[in-house]
Amino acid sequence: MTLPPPSPTFGVPVSSGLEADLALALRLADAADRVSMERFDAPDLDISVKADASHVTEADLATERAIRALLEAERPTDGIFGEEYGSTGDTHRQWIIDPIDGTANYLKGIPMWATLISLAIDGVPQIGVVSQPAIGRRWWGATGLGAWTDQPTGEPRRLAASSIASLAEASVSFQSIAQWRSAGQLDALERLTSAVWRDRAYGDAWPYMLLAEGRLELVAEFDVKEYDVAAHVPIIREAGGRFSAFDGSDSISARSALATNGPLYDEFLALLHDAD
């Protein structure tokens, strides 16, 4: 994966201080892809059920170990927070990892899953990489360095969120009805889907990247952990979108996510909280 140089043409500074960390994050994704793809759709894949009733596979564990091994070698003083092996080290600079986001898809041989890698500094995600090797796609971004995706030509393409400013023209992904029901937000979901042009439940990491590409105007979900969303934050923000918790707070620890293009964020927030 080629790291694009900062370009003054896009208003990107010559140096943001994050170039080396972003280059490492992309190499972490390379290492993760090699491990996860080795066992994808394997008939003898080992699958277990965790205490929270979610699934974990041997590939989840092996992928996180591969990422941790490289980080421990190259950033030994940085902290790590991963879904499978918890938190270690300092939280000033903390790598936040979901080795396989979409394990339910992975274990079924469905290619819509991703490895999520983020570097948070003082709790704020500054670097994000989302890699979906089963469909040959990757997205990445860093504060001050823009948001990018790969192309068949090998030349990275800069991402830009959509400029749509009308709810009636917006396309949204709400993830799942069950999530909104469990969060007590079915009325809000009804208001949302009644107000927009199109609604779908694409699920997991992919709709956030569709939003960064300008193909959706909103993605919202509940019951998410830091490792589910941290990687999306720099990509969406650098693409010109906005990212917050469902209540509008600037937090990745609030167990909810609300990502939108720039122009419609305030209108979406008001619509979703109309009953409040």
Rank of each mutant, 00 (worst) to 15 (best):
A120Y: 08
W113T: 01
R39M: 00
Q179F: 14
P4Q: 07
D266Q: 02
H232I: 01
A170R: 10
D46L: 15
S162E: 00
F222Y: 14
A25W: 06
D98C: 07
Q132L: 14
G17Q: 09
D44Q: 14
A212G: 03
D228W: 09
W139H: 15
T149R: 14
R158L: 12
Y227A: 03
G262W: 00
G146V: 10
G11F: 08
W206S: 04
I135V: 15
P125E: 06
L22Q: 07
T63L: 05
E38H: 14
G136H: 08
S173D: 15
D52Q: 00
G86H: 02
D223V: 05
G141M: 15
A120E: 10
M37Y: 01
L28A: 12
Y265P: 03
D44T: 15
E64N: 07
A239Q: 01
D44A: 06
Y202M: 13
E84V: 09
E58D: 14
I235F: 02
I117H: 06
S16A: 15
I67L: 07
E38M: 12
Q126D: 11
Q179D: 09
T63F: 01
A259C: 08
A205D: 07
P4A: 12
S48L: 12
R157M: 14
L18C: 04
V124A: 13
A42W: 09
I110Y: 05
I67N: 01
G11C: 08
S253W: 04
A270W: 01
A168K: 09
V233P: 06
G141V: 10
S176D: 12
L107V: 15
L210T: 11
I177K: 09
R68E: 14
R157Y: 07
D276Q: 13
V129E: 07
A161Y: 00
I236Q: 05
I252H: 06
A165E: 05
R93W: 13
A254M: 12
I117C: 13
S256A: 08
T103K: 06
V12W: 15
E83K: 02
R75F: 03
L218Y: 04
D30L: 01
L210E: 10
R137E: 15
P263T: 03
